[in-house]
Simulated scan of single mutants.
Amino acid sequence: MACIGQLMVVIDGLIVTVALPAIRSDMELSATTQGWVVNGYLLSFGGLLLAASRAADRLGHRRVFAAGVAVFTLASLCGGLAPDGGMLLAARVAQGVGAAAIAPTSLSLLTTTFTGTARPRALSAWSATSAVAGAGGLVIGGVITAELGWRWVFLANVPVGIVLIALTAAVPASIVETRPTAYPWRTVLRRSIIVANVSMTVLGAAMTAALYCLSLFLQNVQGRSPLATGSALLPMSLVLALGSVISPRLLVRWGPNAVMTVGTITAMAGAVALVMSMNGDHGVAILAGATLVWACGTGVLTMPLVSLATSGVPPAAAGLASGVMSVARQIGGVVGVVAVVALGVVPAAG
């Protein structure tokens, strides 16, 4: 249930990224407004994460999770039926509100349910879900946009949301509810958690900027269709998922410091190569190689950061810890998109 919620949130962001050129053309959006189709979602998402996390700790994780899914589903319906850019942006902001409730509660449901040796496996599955969502979302987004039109990238969320609400209602409240009487902020102000969240901010900026740039580069510069773009990015998403899956084994063998160091260096090397390949006359093989190197480092790095950002946190603060981590990642995502738009990293169609 928790992973399905995370799957829905991540897939939506990626599907919309692939559909951006079609949305801009159909609604005659400016480049700035096109960027806000992404940033409107990210800002409301990031801005309400802590409030949603606190509500989850006080009212119950399952209740807030279900409410978030309901809001997200209704906003998706409005986005798919939007008659103009203003309505679409409003729907995206509303989707961010729903996602703000889904993301931290999907993680806190796991951290309060699984302990001991089961916890790393649960966190690995949650981390891998994002990458698996990327693998499916990019291709599904390309297929839907090419065959059904961009509006269905929103409407497709509706039946998934309805099913998820039904599944949530079927779970006994006693399994997933934690009712704290205190709100211990000091538990998430430890040095290790602060370092993990700062690193997650940087990672969020890099991941969002890379996906945004690659999607627009492949369509606007190389002239690929949405379907071809999704297919081209599929190997990258699969490598991200693989990295998240093997991270627990690497942690046992090497330790967290070594895994995060290697992951960071690999991701940075891939990012530099990726920027160079998009701003020069390089072949497809070089671009693909740079993308896979970046994905390998990022995939390995994600799960240790999630674990570090939530380790040692009592159930009473599980929602808070998850919310702080999600805020860090979303702030990074906004900064990443703003940076690439402001710097003109991806040229428009010629």
Score class of each variant (00 low, 15 high):
Cys3Gln: 09
Thr264Pro: 01
Ala31Tyr: 09
Ala295Asp: 06
Ala318Arg: 11
Ser174Met: 05
Val202Ala: 15
Arg179Phe: 00
Ala348Lys: 15
Pro248Asp: 12
Ala206Phe: 06
Pro304Ser: 03
Ser30Tyr: 04
Ala169Arg: 12
Ala122Arg: 13
Gly344Gln: 14
Met303Ala: 13
Gly96Cys: 08
Arg253Asn: 03
Gly299Ser: 08
Ala31Lys: 13
Val340Ile: 09
Leu233Phe: 08
Met8Asn: 11
Gly137Asn: 08
Gly332Cys: 05
Ala118Glu: 12
Pro235Ala: 05
Met27Arg: 15
Leu74Ile: 10
Pro347Arg: 11
Gly161Gln: 13
Val153Asp: 12
Cys213Met: 15
Thr298Met: 12
Ala210Asp: 00
Gly46Thr: 05
Ala309Gly: 14
Ser30Glu: 01
Thr145Gln: 14
Ile102Gln: 01
Gly96Thr: 05
Met1Asp: 05
Val252Tyr: 04
Val284Trp: 00
Ala75Asn: 03
Ala99Glu: 02
Gly136Tyr: 05
Phe154Thr: 11
Leu292Lys: 14
Ala94Ser: 03
Ala317His: 07
Ile194Ala: 02
Pro83Asp: 04
Arg62Pro: 04
Ile15Val: 15
Pro180Ser: 02
Ala75Cys: 07
Arg58Phe: 05
Asn197Ser: 00
Asn197Lys: 01
Val132Trp: 02
Asp12Met: 12
Ala133Asp: 03
Val9Leu: 02
Thr129Lys: 11
Ser247Arg: 10
Val176Arg: 15
Thr105Gly: 03
Thr291Val: 11
Ile246Val: 15
Ser237Tyr: 06
Val313Asp: 00
Ala205Leu: 04
Ser25Lys: 14
Val198Trp: 04
Thr17Gln: 12
Thr310Lys: 11
Ala267His: 04
Thr261Cys: 03
Thr266Arg: 01
Phe65Val: 10
Ile15Thr: 10
Gln219Glu: 08
Cys78Met: 15
Leu240Gln: 08
Trp36Lys: 15
Ser106Cys: 07
Arg24Asn: 08
Asp84Cys: 14
Ala295Cys: 08
Ile286His: 10
Ala285Tyr: 07
Trp185Arg: 15
Val313Phe: 06
Ala241Gln: 09
Ser127Glu: 03
Ser108Leu: 07
Pro304Ile: 13
Ile331Gly: 10
Ala339Glu: 01
Met236Ala: 10
Val334Cys: 06
Val37Ala: 13
Pro104Gly: 04
Ala135Gly: 02
Thr181His: 12
Leu107Thr: 09
Ile165Thr: 03
Ala339Gln: 05
Ala52Lys: 01
Val259His: 05
Ala339Lys: 14
Gly141Asp: 13
Met27Ile: 08
Ala288Cys: 01
Trp126Phe: 11
Pro315Thr: 07
Leu7Tyr: 14
Arg92Asn: 07
Ser44Phe: 08
Gly333Met: 03
Pro304Thr: 06
Pro184Cys: 01
Asn220Trp: 12
Ala52Leu: 02
Pro304Arg: 09
Ala258Pro: 06
Ile175Gln: 09
Trp152Gln: 10
Glu147Phe: 10
Thr111Lys: 07
Leu110Trp: 08
